[in-house]
Amino acid sequence: MNIVVCIKQVPDTQDVKMDPERGTLIREGVKSIVNPFDLYAIEEGLRIKERMGKGRVVVMTMGPPQAEDALREAIAMGADHGILISDRAFAGADTLATSYTLAKSIEKLGSPWIIICGKQAMDGDTAQVGPELATWLNFPQITYVSKIIDMGDDRIKVERLTDYGYDIVESSLPCVITVNKEINEPRLPSLRGMMKAKKFKAEVWDSSSVEVDRRYIGLDGSPTRVVSIFAPPVKKGGEKYHGEPDELARHIARKLEEIKII
């Protein structure tokens, strides 16, 4: 039975900058990392396998050839297998086309026990791929899972973190869960894992090896259009006043009146 973990390679936003003219991300020289939430998904997949003493952790990602590095990181943590879904025909996909492609890939893989995603990617922040994936697959979905309380071959009971508190939810399996940072603490890679990862070659699936309806993939399958991207304007520093306390107090009071605060 496959414990499928869907991950995404994202630019390390700690050092990502915007091109203010073109309104796009400057990706040159920016390090790529595994989406931080996805590390929790990988960790939970590994823990399920360890706890249940069975299952195969298969990590999947859709992306350009270099996304293999993200799979490699998962292998170093202990994942059993990695599949890279990569084809120019998949490029330009929004969340709908991405989740469709992932769903078709999971169907090709077969025998899913559980599908785990991070709650959202830190570049797009949509939190849509997990729920859409469940919809395409016609599986139940539980989002924002903070704890797996109990799991068997065909049932799962979890705790999910919401704005109003915790929900305890039960579902049949297979289902799709998305996890948040409360669920675990991702392990570091092990040396034996790193050595395995060094030699690892991802299994690459393209648009001919996955059975897809071409109307639903890539740019054509994406109803979302990004009209423009912009960084919020940087706040300008305030004005500085120098002078005697009395004078300054009067000055500030006048200013506050001007902008109708008092």
Partner: peptide, 20 residues
């Protein structure tokens, strides 16, 4: 525990005794 799980304790142990 993290060091152990990362195989760090294996590095100076010969391979025939589960080291690296």
């Amino acid at each position: 525990k993290v060091m152990a799980e990362s195989d760090l304790f294996r590095i100076f142990i010969p391979e025939e005794y589960e080291g690296l």
